[in-house]
Design a protein around this nucleic acid. Structure first.
Lengths: 138, 138
DNA sequence: CCGTATCCTCATCGATACTG
DNA sequence: CAGTATCGATGAGGATACGG
């Protein structure tokens, strides 16, 4: 393990804040769709399976507010609006991709752990119980 | 920017799954508290500001189910229970810390973006509007 | 000390309908 | 095409009380 992992109080707060930002239901989908260049509103809506118009608007506004995406209106008729990652938004892709990669690498292990846990649920004699290796003093 | 960022369909799914896992309100706090060694239930409860007993239990169960933490019961009187990261849980700390570091580095920039956005809200003449640089065709 | 059970609240999000 | 407005369901999560 790396000895330089940041698990200080500040690190916790920072982690939570960014997870609040990008941990919602749709943000990463949008960020990843925009990773290759600007995309129009309805293009996003079509390519992100299951997103509602409402949530697409809300999530884009929120990303725009945080300086992660830009919104550009083209006054054509009918109008079209393009969304694109800012430089800041682009840099976010790196740690997010690292997380995604971790997930892909360890997904089978997690699935097995879940299956094992669910299989053993309720069986008291399968629970891990340590012997009394220490006496309480206090 | 790195040319090897994974924004494939599989990468999206993987990202969402891990964010569902670790993006909830309390998981990172717990994982980070356990990063330096085993901690007992009530120690966790005391050190994680604002967590309820209910949510601590639920989140720990969920982390245990996914093979990220272990639960060890010491049959002392009264009983004590220690939680610790598994090897898998430890490896998760790295991408999570990367995210936290990104958040810390860019937090001021985000705060300013928010302030700017909120200040300009409602003022139509401040919105970014592109000229008609292309004609719609179909 | 370490939980589980119950109730209650509030934010999130989908569905639908309507505007420039 | 790109939104906004409104409503309703759902579920996450806090408070509290109780049990092993």
């Amino acid at each position: 393990m790396s000895p330089t992992l940041d698990h200080t109080s500040g690190g916790c707060i920072a982690a939570r804040q960014i997870l609040d930002r990008v941990g919602d239901k749709w943000s990463i989908y949008i960020v990843m769709m925009l990773s290759e260049g600007p995309v129009r509103f309805n293009q996003l809506k079509r390519s992100i399976e299951g997103i509602s118009q409402r949530m697409l608007t809300l999530t884009l506004r929120s990303l725009e507010r945080d300086g992660l995406v830009t919104r550009t209106v083209f006054p054509t008729v009918p109008q079209s609006v393009e969304y694109a990652l800012t430089d800041l938004g682009s840099t976010l892709l790196e740690p997010v991709s690292a997380l995604a990669q971790w997930a892909q690498v360890n997904s089978t292990q997690i699935q097995r752990a879940r299956a094992d846990f669910d299989a053993g649920a309720g069986k008291a004699d399968e629970q891990e119980v340590a012997g009394v290796t220490r006496i309480r003093f206090g």
